[in-house]
Nucleic acid binder design. Structure first.
Lengths: 348, 348
DNA sequence: CTGTTAGCGCCTTCAA
DNA sequence: TTGAAGGCGCTAACAG
């Protein structure tokens, strides 16, 4: 059971060489084929593995990267992690994961914690980058790449929420909608609450002869919260709104449920859209028209970015693609044969 | 930027004491308040943090636990992780996560890898515990706790899939159903494909005067695969099946979509059930009747179990609760006033 | 209570 | 090519 942890000294003795020779065998080279063979054999027999901590104490790099997440149980986080792993795993990096539970303080503490552990770099899927983040990043000597949110004074990489909003705004305008209600989240979430909404607003209003109306309703990220906004939504529909633009697919799902219970038909009576492109959004009915985010790719790009700053090649990364997925939840308005929908599959 | 990594020796010098004194200050105690104050001040000023690797090299425990997951992007895995973190975090443990991508070989490699990193223990959410797992666990000196699957020769802790199946079987029997089609997954997944089905079968057949029929259809775990089974399902419905018992909520969602497209009404024309109790299952329509699993709790219990074997108090853990959640997707059959549904909220 | 002395297991000059 | 020696930063006896 408790196999004595074999050390480099022991295998050196067994092979009749010095530990430096074994070390050389393990790392660079520079040894005779004869001794190499002996060492190889002993190592195989004993199942020797270099002590991780001793090694890291000597070497500068730990091959450990920290990943701090806003929460663990979210579809987007899962995809992000998959992408990150896809890059790190083949390069021998291991991930130390910490959850911030949606708390800025915890996020900061986690970063500090990770830095102390001696990780080579940190990826932070942030809930919001504050001045304290900037300070901390500056004071730490371990490189940090942020995603989810952005800030001029740190390394960051995220998909363009403003562009996503624009994509949806332009699409709905072309579908003949002129009065929308935007069911969004708090502006404190700069990316989802701010950029996404603003992008929608700008593109939805853009280039109209008449004026467009956009009402706002604020909700949380969960189904229940969105569902609870139902009555407010009805008010705005009575006021003439023809589409509910939800800040996330999850929010849209809550809205869909509310409408279903009230026998409000989607998209016949009102259109509904989301953002995110979760798998489940394609299987509900009506299937959700949404802007799809490739979180897997975001994870890969972010991880690659961190690797780049680690190796000094700190060059800007490319854009992240955004796709509008037309499904069943939006109705085309207006009797005239509206112009064909332009290609929304290009980046806005 | 590159703040020179300050060592314990340096702060010892600055405080005018020996490094052992500083070490003592950091760990046990045994120092005068005077020196303690001086050290405290120096540490605060320098922002000194003990080198993680040097410390771990000396100490026997690494305060690192490995977690190997079948995949990253799954709701259940997310919840499990949340639960695991809830136990480990307050105790100062950090989690090293690795994904097996549904591969047994990768799972084995990950365990080996983690053991080599010097983690104190490993949690494996397994895709299937083979003899090779048992061998490996035996040969490694780091304790391993498995979940998701079970095996007599290793530490394991999982929810009772057989009992969950029974819960559903008994419920549907009481609801007057006598002919079901079980839409399950491969038997190679002992827990979901085997136990869950067998439990259902046993309880569904149990204590009947007449005979019950259960047809089988095999699918994958994803929406699309389940959706693709639609035609087969129709066959069995034509043959008299009144309920489709899906092995997971996700599978049920795919089925619901299929039926919706074909204008088959649920539960009027056919009942549908799931297993899992995912959040989204409550918001779709009809809301899914399902057996709810508390993966968060599973994570907590598993983590606690690992901690227990780590500290030698290797005692058996309690049962994990299972709840049947009655929602909208099952119709009561039979004209007679069936006996009231017994309490399914107790453990089967 | 405190400083001195040994290593933990590994890598890396430095001579040989 | 190889071995000896030194040290990474820290903790844990051991004497004072």
């Amino acid at each position: 059971m408790s196999e004595h942890k074999v050390t480099i000294q022991e295998i050196a003795d067994m092979a009749g060489v010095s530990k430096s020779t074994v070390s050389r065998y393990l790392n660079q080279g520079y040894i005779s084929e004869e001794k190499a063979a002996r060492i190889r054999e002993v190592i195989r027999a004993t199942g020797y593995k270099a002590n991780f901590f001793a090694k890291r104490l000597k070497m500068k790099e730990s091959k450990l990267v920290g990943v701090v997440l806003p929460r663990m149980d979210s579809v987007t986080v899962g995809k992000l992690l998959t992408g990150i792993g896809r890059i790190f795993e083949p390069r021998g990096y291991q991930g130390l994961l910490l959850s911030s539970q949606l708390s800025v303080d915890k996020e900061l503490a986690n970063i500090r914690n990770l830095a102390q552990q001696g990780v080579d770099g940190i990826i932070v899927d942030s809930v919001g980058i504050t001045e304290r983040h900037v300070q901390l990043a500056r004071s730490l000597d371990v490189p940090i790449v942020f995603t989810g949110q952005q800030h001029a004074d740190v390394h960051w990489l995220k998909l363009d929420d403003y562009a996503a909003g624009r994509l949806m705004g332009a699409y709905l305008r072309q579908m003949g909608h002129a009065h929308a209600v935007f069911l969004g989240v708090s502006e404190r979430d700069k990316a989802v609450g701010g950029d996404r909404k603003r992008g929608f607003l700008d593109a939805f209003q853009e280039g109209r002869t008449g004026e467009a109306l956009v009402d706002f309703v604020e909700t949380g990220f969960d189904f229940l919260s969105a569902y609870g906004c139902g009555p407010a939504l009805e008010q705005h529909m009575a006021g003439g709104a023809t589409v509910v633009v939800c800040a996330t697919d999850n929010i849209a799902l809550g809205v869909l449920r509310y409408f279903h219970e009230l026998r409000v038909r989607v998209p016949e009576d009102v259109s509904v859209t989301g953002f995110g492109g979760y798998d489940v959004s394609a299987v509900v009915y009506p299937a959700l028209t949404t802007v799809q985010f490739d979180y897997d790719l975001v994870g890969m790009k972010t991880a690659q970015y961190l690797l780049d700053v680690l190796s000094g090649t700190d060059e800007p990364v490319g854009e992240l693609p955004l796709h509008l997925i037309e499904r069943e939840s939006v109705r085309r308005l207006g009797s005239d044969e509206a112009a064909p929908v332009e290609s929304f599959h290009a980046l806005a």
